[in-house]
Structures are given as structure tokens and as C-alpha cells.
Amino acid sequence: MMSSTTEKSVLICAKAFPPVVGGVESYSEHTAQAYLRCGVTPTVLTSFPGESGWTTREYPEGKIDVLNVGTGSQPKILARLARAARSQTRANRFTFCHATTWRAGVALLPWARTPRTAVTVHGREILINPFYLRPVLRRALPRFDLLASVSDYTGARLQQEFPELQNSKGRIVSFNGLSYRREACLHTPSFDRSKVRIYSFCRLVERKNLLNAVRAIALLKDKRLPVPFEYVISGTGPLADEIRAAIDRLELHDHVRMTGYLPDSQVIENFKNTDIFLHPQVAAVSDLDIEGFGLVIADAMSFGAAAVVGKDGGPSDFIEDDQTGLIVDGGSVEQIAGALERLVSDEKYRQRIATQGRAWCLDNLSWDNHVLDIMRALEV
């Protein structure tokens, strides 16, 4: 509910926002905070469970007005977002508008005629859509002044799926930032442990490929490695029971445990105590369900974990194999096991990979840079 006298302001339209937990939801909050740090006042229109209406969120950077339009069917939510966008663009002179997904942008576009508009492209949300939404998507994307992809991989998939966008007026690639930059910068990694800790933290869905991760641990179980290891899995999702059953079947209770959901404070502590972050993602659902960037991987690396990631998706944009992490074929249990064995067995090698990966993430990944890239591209 900002006034029209604000020098620079952005209207953010987000499909969802914390307290809803998820990658896009976190993206929306991180960008809103970054806009504040960059001297831009954000107003957020979004949907999440709970009481609808305006609230003011307080952050270290300042205050953000958030309008929750409530929950319901997707058409109802989009209609409410559209009404809110119309009301806000009539009452306030925003410098520009930013839709954090294309569907939220559909609610914004009809009313954002004067300010310039940007939409973020994460990956799977442009590839997996019901057939009846594909025409809407094709008509909506060219109307934005800027399409901001979060990785080169995502940008390439956008071009592949929508070749008509090749001559569109504004396209950039700008990497995500880090979720816990301050905490990561203050942390001093330890590389001298009596037990090597392998960690996965993600939504337990097919593309994260944790069933193959568990199978790889089974291959390591009987090897005579120089140091013991344990594998910890955090997160919830539809494959939780199947992963648990695989642990039972392969008799891995001495090596693998699942923690379920964790609050942010515990996630940070887990990152601090992680030696190897395992994320052997694949492209699922006929190559459409992709990892657009891999923020949790970058977060783990920023605390000093050596990353083992799959070759599919955005993580290969910021991980150079054998330099800042290890890239494997997620479909090969043997490759995953081989990468883990090398890192567990060779402490100096693990330290080199972890140190170089951490330095790259801290030097290159910043939410402030991300929103500044968007603002420069929009010329605002």
C-alpha cells in the first residue's frame, strides 16, 4: 500500500510467498529483500494459506507490504491477483513490475501498461503445463519487456521451446543469489572430521533422483574406505516412503537416515556440518521436469561442502567438473558411487573441490546483483 511519491518502486506479482515453503516462493522473498537493499520499495501481491488482506513484513532491510489474495482454485487466485494488480497500478505509479513466474504475470500484464515489466523464467514452469495453457503462455511471454532466465540452461530450454522468442526485445540470464550469504561468510569450514557426512536436502520428487543416491550408498557400504561416512536426507515429498523402503531393503540403517522437514535454523547447522552435498538430479517426465538452477546446491557449497550433482539442468552452469564440484550422470549409480568414493577417500581432494566451489559461489552469486541485472536491462 505504498504511496505514489516513492522515488523507485516495484510491484511484485508472485504465485506464492513465504510462509509457503518452496524454491519459487523463496525466490520471490529473496528478490523483494534485494530490491529493498538496492533502494527500491517493493509491494507484493501473492497467495498463501491464512487470513487474506494486507500485512507488513519486517526484514533487516526494511518493511514490505504484502497482499494475500487468499487460496482457492488457480483461476480464482489469478482473478484475485488481476483485480489487485489493477487496483495497485491505478493507485500507485510503480517504476516497474516484476512477475516471479509467468502465471503470476498473466494476472499482471493487462494492467501494467505504463511501467516496464519483467518475468523470471526458472525452468520447469514453462515446460510443464496443461495443453490449454500453452496458447496463453505463448501469447504472454512476448508481452513482457524482459525475460530473465536464472541459468544458461534454462535460457536455452526457453529458446528451444519457444523459438519465436529469438527476436524478442529483452532476454537476459542472471543467476540466483544465496539463501544464507551472511551465515556462510561467517562460517569457517572444517575438513578434518572422524566421519565424512554426505547430505541431501530437497523436495523428495523424481527429478532429485535420491533413489539412485541411496543405491550408490549401498555400493559404498561394503568398500573398505579409509574413513567412515554417513548419509543424511532432509526434506519431504511424494517419494519419501519409497526412499525409506529402499533404505530398509538395502539394509542401510547404519549409514543412512532421513530427518523429514527442517526449519531454516537447522538447515544452516546441517550445511555447516556437511562435507559432501549430494544432488544427482535428472530431467524427469520426458525431459520436461528439470532443475532450472539448483539454489540448495549453491547454498551448501557456500558453507564449504563439496558438491556432487547430475549433469542435467542448471547446476552445470555454476559447477565446473573436477574444479568447483563433480558432475555425474544421475542415471548411473556407479558414477554417483565413484564420485562419492573419491571424495570420501581423499581428504585433500575433497578440500580442494570444496574450497574452490565455496569461493566461486561467494564471489559470484548475489541477490543484489540479480535484481540489479533486471533493473539495468529494463533501464529503470
Rank of each mutant, 00 (worst) to 15 (best):
P18M: 04
F17D: 03
G292M: 10
P49G: 04
P60Q: 07
I353L: 06
G260P: 01
A14D: 05
G70L: 11
D152V: 11
T6V: 15
L250G: 04
L178F: 00
L45W: 00
T117F: 03
R342D: 10
G304H: 07
T355W: 00
G62L: 10
F201G: 04
A337G: 09
E242Q: 15
A298I: 05
E242M: 10
V296W: 04
Y153V: 07
R90K: 11
F277N: 05
Q323V: 12
G123W: 11
E230T: 12
P49A: 05
R342H: 08
N209G: 03
Q266R: 13
Y153N: 10
K63A: 14
R113L: 07
V344N: 04
A377C: 06
A91K: 15
R182P: 02
L127I: 04
C97K: 08
V328Y: 06
S52V: 06
D368V: 04
L220N: 12
H279R: 06
S174Y: 00
R83I: 01
T31A: 15
G39S: 08
P110V: 09
V285M: 12
I77M: 03
K169A: 14
T46S: 01
Y153G: 09
R182G: 00
I276V: 12
Q159V: 09
E291V: 05
N273A: 14
R93M: 10
P315E: 07
G50H: 08
S9H: 13
D317L: 08
T95F: 01
G50I: 02
D145N: 14
P110F: 06
W54I: 09
N176A: 01
A300Y: 00
S316H: 09
I374F: 08
S9V: 09
Y35E: 12
A305H: 08
A354L: 10
V136S: 14
T324E: 09
T120G: 04
R342V: 03
I64P: 11
A283F: 03
E341N: 06
E161K: 10
G310W: 06
V40P: 10
L158E: 05
F191W: 13
L252V: 02
L127H: 13
A306E: 14
P130G: 04
L11G: 02
K8G: 01
F131H: 14
A245T: 08
A377Y: 05
A99G: 05
L378T: 05
I126A: 02
D329T: 02
L378E: 07
A337D: 10
F48A: 02
S179C: 08
N167A: 14
E291D: 12
L252D: 05
W367C: 01
P238T: 02
A79T: 14
L147S: 01
K195W: 00
S179I: 05
A240L: 12
V10Q: 05
S366D: 14
S151H: 06
V214G: 00
I243K: 08
R203G: 10
L278T: 11
V328G: 07
I217V: 13
E291G: 06
I198F: 14
D329L: 00
T259I: 05
